[in-house]
Design a protein around this nucleic acid. Structure first.
Length: 504
RNA sequence: GGCGACGUACCCAAGUGGUUAAGGGGCGGGUUUGCAAAACCUGUAUUCACCGGUUCGAAUCCGGUCGUCGCCUCCA
């Protein structure tokens, strides 16, 4: 490894050398989704960000335990279920299924553990009890309409409160926008346990029937699978406050162990026309809808082209650009496949000596790729730089491959280049497909959008081939025009006519 | 009001003290082609929002101005 991995830690606002508590082993928790609706492409950014993090950590040989939860007990779920007249847990189960489907289509790794709140109520109750016993939580009678008691966390009992988000309790204007619950000792106190109202899902507890507050589930579930102190805690930047701040406060108060998590990583938001994309603004694009339009790799590429901490302005035009770039990348992979299919005629060194600059450049870029890639990834997961390396290699391959004779004797040069693409594919999830699979995915989606069938296009292509054989250029060009209107791009090569769908 | 981030070419986006300011898309020119397409070559920022300052040297550090955005309330 050329250099040690450095990670930006929200807690210290600095790049820090990454050193897991147990050498060789990484424990990582990422806040997953509250499952009350279909996931949007902003959620996809968070999931892809941490997917790449896990992939890179594993690539460097670390044994990563990766936990991503489903929050399936929550006020919003209850509200949504009430509207639909559905059981809240049935509703969340439905959206967990949908989420899993999206995750599969995005090509995301399956986390080591995917705990659900509803299956960890005992852990949560036990943690709340510890917090209360240690004097950081207090029990108050339930609000009107509910029976039993609520339990609140006392932020003033935790001196480090505000450390993660850089907030000072005395500077906040709690209560300015929302009325403060008079039962709270401090406006910033938050619920650990909520007494149940009639009809709400509830579990028995020492404080009467109720359910967990919003933040406690992540504390309890991360401890269950990773212990009371672990390496990385991730999530969207919007979770820094209050969610993660509260997680730290309640976790460390309950266990007395510090730190709860060593490295806090937060991904920047996806924005829509300079606006945050969120359910409350109603400007959401669902993952599943986008994946009907473009292959998952296009979305992944769009995401990894920007550093994970920067805001990412989304637009469908950028998705088309990403597809254009992938077309070029897969062209290179086709060239490499052809090169590799021939028996090796010479060593890489001989080829470099005989074929000059294009061979030398290809050899240099391919053989040094792993080290440069590692350098980029080790700098706080600089996928932007890593992607640039892939493009550099892509160009070198295509340049070399423009010489048909060279292709036939250069298996030795193809090998390290293919290994480089494999590495990028494993870690970034781009360029990982077989070229024909990529072109097919684009073709299927575009044809569907145009309402055309492959056979229909093929018939026109065949007709044009006949016209060309007869040297009837006018007819051939007319057919090409017709195909162009369907978004079909033709390529007349020595081996015959091929066609592709235009990406945009 | 508090806290924080950002402003790099036509668009997107790396670079955060010192070789010619990565890379992608687009656009112009060329090679190739029956003509195209694809691919490749080449041109696209003497300059990094603006103004001061520190320094031998700054897109990079400091101060100010303008602008955009986020968090402080549910949010990936």
């Amino acid at each position: 490894m050329p250099q040690e991995l450095r990670v930006y830690n929200t807690l210290t606002r600095k790049l820090e050398p990454f050193r897991p508590a147990e050498p060789g082993r990484v424990r990582m928790y990422v806040c997953g989704m509250t499952v009350y609706d279909y996931c949007h492409i902003g959620h996809a950014r968070a999931m892809i960000t941490f997917d790449v993090v896990v992939r890179w950590l594993r690539e460097t040989g670390l044994d990563v335990t990766y936990v991503r939860n489903y929050t399936d007990v929550d006020d919003k779920i209850i509200a949504r279920a009430a509207e639909a007249g559905e059981d809240p847990l049935a509703l969340s189960a439905r959206f967990i299924e949908a989420l899993d489907e999206d995750v599969g289509r995005l090509g995301l790794l399956t986390p080591t553990h995917q705990p659900k709140v509803s299956e960890h109520i005992d852990d949560i109750i036990a943690l709340v009890e510890r917090i209360v016993e240690r004097g950081h939580g207090y029990v108050v009678p339930a609000a009107e309409g509910a029976e039993g008691h609520d339990v609140f966390f006392s932020v003033r009992s935790f001196p480090r409160y505000g450390q993660l988000s850089g907030k000072n309790l005395d500077d906040q204007r709690a209560g300015e926008r929302v009325d403060v619950d008079p039962r709270k000792r401090d406006p910033a106190d938050f619920a650990l346990w909520k007494a149940a109202r009639p009809g709400e899902p509830s579990w028995p507890s020492p404080w009467g029937p109720g359910r967990p507050g919003w933040h406690i589930e992540c504390s309890a579930m991360s401890m269950r699978y990773l212990g009371e102190s672990f390496d990385i805690h991730g999530g969207g930047i919007d979770l820094v406050f209050p969610h993660h701040e509260n997680e730290i406060a309640q976790s460390e108060s309950g266990t007395g162990v510090h730190p709860f998590a060593h490295y806090w990583m937060h991904n920047g938001h996806l924005t829509m026309a300079h606006e945050k994309m969120s359910k409350s603004l109603g400007n959401i694009v669902r993952i599943r809808d986008i994946l009907d339009e473009v292959p998952a790799e296009a979305l992944r590429l769009l995401y990894v082209e920007t550093h994970y901490r920067s805001p990412l302005p989304y637009s469908s035009a950028r998705l088309v650009e990403a597809m254009a770039a992938l077309d070029r990348l897969y062209h290179a992979r086709e060239v490499l496949a052809e090169m590799a299919s021939r028996p090796p005629a010479a060593s890489a060194e001989e080829l470099v000596r005989d074929l000059g600059e294009p061979a030398a450049q290809l050899h240099e870029l391919a053989s040094r790729f792993p080290e440069r890639f590692a350098e980029a990834m080790n700098e706080d997961f600089n996928t932007s730089r890593a992607v640039a390396l892939v493009y550099d290699l892509t160009r070198a391959v295509n340049r070399f491959g423009n010489n048909k004779k060279w292709r036939k004797r250069s298996a030795a040069l193809a090998e390290p280049a293919l290994a480089a693409f494999d590495l990028a594919g494993r870690v970034l999830g781009i360029g990982a497909l077989e070229p024909e699979d990529w072109f097919r995915q684009v073709r299927e989606r575009r044809l569907r959008a145009m309402g055309r069938s492959e056979a229909e296009v093929q018939a026109l292509v065949d007709a044009r081939v006949e016209a060309r054989k007869a040297r009837d250029w006018a007819r051939a060009d007319a057919i090409r025009e017709e195909l162009a209107e369907l978004g079909v791009v033709l390529m007349d090569t020595a081996d015959g006519t091929r066609w592709r769908m235009r990406v945009g």
